[in-house]
Design a protein around this nucleic acid. Structure first.
Length: 992
DNA sequence: ATTAGGG
DNA sequence: CCCTAAT
């Protein structure tokens, strides 16, 4: 025993270096730590007394219980299918396992850096445990019991690699310069082909849940996103970052540790051909901010609407993190410690950070993945057709980057194919410039760039970050002035930095401005943030900048605060304008790409926008925009009562015609005169309107400025339908908002002086015309139209809708909401193509109160349900609904439950009186045998009704044990097992 | 508010 | 899919 110590109530004990049995590649001379706790994401920690006790108790159990330890490990490592009865523990609780950890270096706790410069956090198994310790997890023989102490996981030595190689700082750690990544040069993507290829393949083989775990391992964030592509891309990003941070060796280690070299990976470069055409995805996308004074055109043709499901989930994820975890995430992303407690601020920063990764570090390929991650396979987005299947490879995103060498002269090439080609000359000089700066100067530059203090000493990191930041400046600004000012501030006037717009102007201005127009309302101006492509086009920034130019410095500061949530005292107008433009740009992009910002926005302001655009099969673009609760945008600190909830959706018809976009954003920034005060409550106004739009795809912008807005207090709760109609977060926000509004009118008035929002937009909408629709769809469509019409003509009435109406009346809003409010692609598709047309009114209108809304379950829905059950277990219907059907207004938790019940019947899994002749009902879509089989399996793993939750869940472990005991065997659930498991409601009932 | 279960 | 009881 080398020593014990305590920290924060946790005790660490360092024991001798001999207790770890050799098993392959044991680290020579390693030190073995007892009672190390390895968290699910691979972070090592010391075990608390309780945890040690729990594990000890567990080990004291009879042999028969040992399986639960396996289950624990499986669970911890994401092999859910091997983890029995995880239903009860699948919440958000993590389980840790206690182990003996071996390291060849002393290990300290709490971020202390030891003599070797290895911090605890660098023990992180970067690939996620699932890949890092396969053998440990897969083979329980590695779980051996040691006579005198705790569980020892021999396999853990595999974790050691991260000890050896993960490095806190780049500077001293890049070993082989020939291989090393030079952050100053390109920052991104000098990923060796082989590496990324293998990586991708590797990822490909992981289950979705494993991907989620990998995600967690990398980002330290829990994710429930099911979309594999999304996960791929995120994980890839994360790995990419680790590469840059930890040196190139990482991936190889990662790869080899998985022992999956067998597959060859090929990187197809085909995809980058299509990278460039973001604008083709959404040629006319635009968003409008409307309001008292200005219209904000946030349109970004670029980034396509990310399905709300994703962003919802992201938001939920972030939401579930503690503030401290958010701070950690922040650190992970920005490399900066933060003590900011403001969750919203953290949200936004983290979101921005992720966004930046998307934009600048990974190139268009990522975005394509984003797009593809929407699962809108049927959208026929031109821009992603060919490529998203190949999103796997980094180099396809940035062909040639891998060849880049890392000498400073190579410069920062962030262009990654198509995004923002920075003239090399510029970036070259850039890098040289930075190289000549002192660390302190870099700190200053960093501060000026990001508005954040940093104490990071790593020059390369700083340079890369600053470069990234400057890159954004370059994009957003017409330029030279900015760079020059930077230069001079860095006392390097001798170097001329030039921003050669020519080199990238091509892809920006033209495509960006398609359809852009400056809107003037009420003598106000439009802030046009639109950018057809990622880079902020000149025209864009010109326009916006122009607009911003007219603001006073103070107003700019105010806008800055609204945008970033940061107070600034910077007087430099240009800086402010740039930052604001960038920020707004980020908002747009984030909104569309990652959706993270939704949280940020929604938690403060409330603009609930639902944009939909679809093309009919005749090729005529039609658009529908439904705006709800357009109330505000910006000004978080002051108000915190606004909510912006934007959902942009776009779809193309099967003919692949371009989709058009329309959007609305609330008012922005300009203070209202006090007479407009009450208009701040415009969020209470819920108006929609329709109009047909031609294939300009842009023509549907119509809005009312605040003066035209009818104000109305929402005196009642919205109908259920309305509430349901909004997807989860907006729902929450709405409710919150309502509360706040009613409770703090005064504050609102005050706010209105600051003016946040007051616009209401009416958007034209056009019911999708379904040529394929027979009479059925016509009926449906007609119904929908009727509803919309009703809505249109009674916009405000929506709120007056008597909540006491028959519940079924929610259908009045349902379709609207389900199609307009959802942005989940899948959902939308379901709605538009399936559900909508499949809604059948069973009874005639005579029996309105009794009518039955029958929506045929689509196969995709069924699959989602199955996936949901497998993930969350039976009985967590709400959870499943939120996570997998986040935007389906129909498909309530009850529906899911019912459907599952039916699936059980159909699958032949025994549920009560199973009728074999159930089989498929005619008319309904046949469920593939494989799916039914899956259901059957799940029925075994997750007995239905699910077992009652153990009452005594005092400890996580015991909870898990209970769970494991309830389903003793995953390998072969015997009938007796099942019986044991079946102590659900049925049984209780029989007892009663 | 959510779930189980009957209809 | 609806409804209700139970929690």
């Amino acid at each position: 025993m080398l020593g014990n110590w305590e920290e924060n109530g946790n005790s660490w004990s360092m024991i001798g270096n001999t207790s770890m049995p050799a098993s392959g590649e044991v680290v020579a001379g390693g030190i073995t730590y007892n009672n190390a706790l390895v968290e699910g994401d691979g972070i090592c920690n010391s075990a608390s007394e309780d945890e040690i006790t729990e594990i000890k108790d567990l080990l004291a159990e009879p042999e028969s219980v040992k399986i639960s330890m396996d289950a624990l490990l499986y669970y911890n490592n994401g092999y859910l299918e091997k983890c029995l009865g995880t239903g009860d523990v699948l919440g958000n609780e993590f389980f840790h396992y206690l182990c003996t950890l071996q390291s060849d270096i002393p290990l300290f706790h709490n971020d202390l850096v030891n003599a070797n410069g290895v911090r605890e956090e660098d023990l992180h198994v970067t690939g996620g445990l699932s890949s890092a310790s396969d053998e440990l997890i897969l083979d329980t023989k590695y779980i051996a019991r040691f006579p005198n102490l705790e569980y020892t996981c021999e396999g853990l030595h595999s974790v050691n690699f991260s000890l050896e190689t993960c490095s806190p700082g780049l500077s001293g750690r890049v070993i082989d310069s020939s291989e090393a990544l030079d952050l100053s040069a390109g920052t991104m993507n000098p990923v060796p082909e082989s590496t990324s290829d293998q990586n991708v393949l590797l990822l490909d083989k992981l289950t979705t849940h494993e991907l989620q775990l990998a995600y967690r391992g990398i980002f330290g964030l829990e994710t429930t996103v099911m979309d594999r592509e999304w996960l791929f891309s995120r994980i890839s990003l994360g790995l990419q970052n680790f590469i840059t941070e930890n040196g190139p060796g990482f991936l190889e280690r990662e790869t080899s540790s998985t022992e999956r070299e067998d597959t060859h990976l090929k990187c197809s470069n085909d995809s980058h051909e299509t990278n460039s055409s973001f604008e083709s995805c959404s040629p006319g996308l635009r968003e409008r901010v409307v309001g008292g004074a200005k219209a904000l055109d946030l349109s970004a043709g670029t980034i396509n609407p990310v399905p709300v499901s994703t962003s919802d989930q992201n938001v939920l994820i972030l939401d579930k993190l503690t503030t401290h975890e958010l701070q950690l995430a922040y650190r992970g992303i920005f490399g900066l410690e933060t003590t900011v407690k403001d969750r919203k601020w953290l949200f936004s920063r983290i979101s921005l950070g992720l966004q930046n990764f998307i934009e600048t570090e990974n190139g268009p390929g990522f975005l394509e993945r984003e797009i593809s991650s929407t699962r809108r396979e049927d959208m026929h987005l031109k821009c992603s057709n060919d490529s998203h299947g190949k999103n796997s490879s980094f180099e396809s995103c940035s062909p040639g980057l891998s060849e880049r060498v890392t000498d400073g002269a190579e410069a920062i090439n962030l262009s990654a194919g198509t995004i923002n080609p920075v003239p090399e000359s510029t970036s070259d000089q850039y890098v040289l410039l930075f190289d000549n700066m002192t660390t302190h100067e870099l700190h200053q530059a960093f501060r000026s760039t990001f508005g954040l203090e940093t104490t990071v000493e790593d020059r390369k990191w700083l340079i890369s970050r600053i470069s990234l930041g400057m890159q954004k400046f370059i994009e957003a600004e017409d330029c030279p002035g900015f760079l020059e000012s930077r230069v001079s501030s860095a006392k390097h006037e001798d170097m001329h930095l030039r921003c050669n717009n020519d080199s990238h102007g091509t892809n920006s201005s033209k495509s960006c401005s398609s359809g852009l127009s400056e809107r003037v309302t009420d003598g106000a101006e439009t802030l046009d943030l639109s950018a057809g492509t990622i880079p902020v086009s000149e025209s864009t920034s010109d326009q916006n900048g122009h607009l911003l130019d007219k603001l006073t410095t103070q107003e700019l500061q105010y806008a800055f605060k609204n945008t970033f949530g940061l107070e600034t005292t910077v007087k430099d107008r240009k800086w402010l304008i740039n930052r604001i433009l960038n920020g707004l740009q980020n908002f747009v992009e984030m909104e569309n790409v990652s959706g993270f910002s939704e949280r940020e926005i929604s938690s403060t302001n409330h603009v609930d926008m639902h944009l939909r655009c679809s093309n009919d099969s005749l090729g005529t673009d039609s658009s529908l925009v439904d705006t709800k609760n357009v109330s505000g945008f910006s000004e978080r600190e002051v108000s915190s009562t606004k909510h912006v909830d934007m959902h942009v959706r776009c779809s193309d018809d099967s003919l692949g015609t371009d989709s058009s976009f329309a959007s609305v954003v609330g008012n922005w920034a300009k203070p209202l005169c006090s007479s407009q005060t009450d208009k701040i409550t415009s969020l209470d106004v819920y108006r929609t309107s329709h109009s047909k739009v031609n294939d300009t795809g842009l023509g549907l912008m119509s809005w009312r400025n605040s003066g035209a807005v009818k104000k109305r207090k929402r005196s009642r709760k919205p109908t259920q339908g309305f509430v349901e109609a909004s997807d989860l977060k907006s729902r929450y926000c709405i409710e919150k908002l309502e509360n706040r509004i009613t409770s703090s009118k005064d504050k609102l008035n005050e706010l209105s002086n600051h003016n946040l929002l007051n616009g209401v937009v009416e958007m034209a909408s056009n019911c999708k015309q379904d040529t394929s629709g027979g009479s059925d769809s016509q009926v449906t469509c007609g119904r929908r139209k009727a509803k919309r019409f009703a809505k249109q003509n009674t916009s405000v009435r929506v709120h007056e809708h008597d909540p006491g109406d028959n519940k079924n009346d929610r259908s009045l809003f349902d379709p609207e909401h389900s199609s307009d409010l959802e942005s989940s692609h899948t959902e939308w598709q379901d709605d538009m193509l399936e559900s909508d047309d499949c809604i059948t009114t069973v009874s005639t209108r005579k029996d309105l109160s009794r009518r039955k809304n029958h929506r045929v379950w689509t196969l995709s829905e069924v699959m989602k349900l199955i996936e949901g059950v497998s993930q969350h277990g039976v009985g967590r219907w709400t959870e499943i609904k939120w996570l997998l059907f986040p935007s389906s207004a129909h498909r309530t938790a009850v529906d899911l439950k019912d459907k599952w019940r039916n699936l059980l019947k159909a699958s032949g899994a025994k549920l009560k009186n199973r009728r074999k002749d159930y089989i498929g009902q005619k008319g309904s879509q046949p469920i593939p045998e494989s799916a039914l089989k899956r259901v059957k399996e799940l029925a075994i793993i997750h007995p239905y009704p699910r077992p009652c939750q153990s009452r005594h869940t005092s400890s996580r472990t015991s909870k898990l044990i209970n769970t494991a005991l309830q389903s003793p065997s995953n390998h072969a659930a015997t009938s007796s097992d099942t019986t044991v498991c079946r102590r659900g409601r049925t049984r209780r009932k029989s007892i009663t």
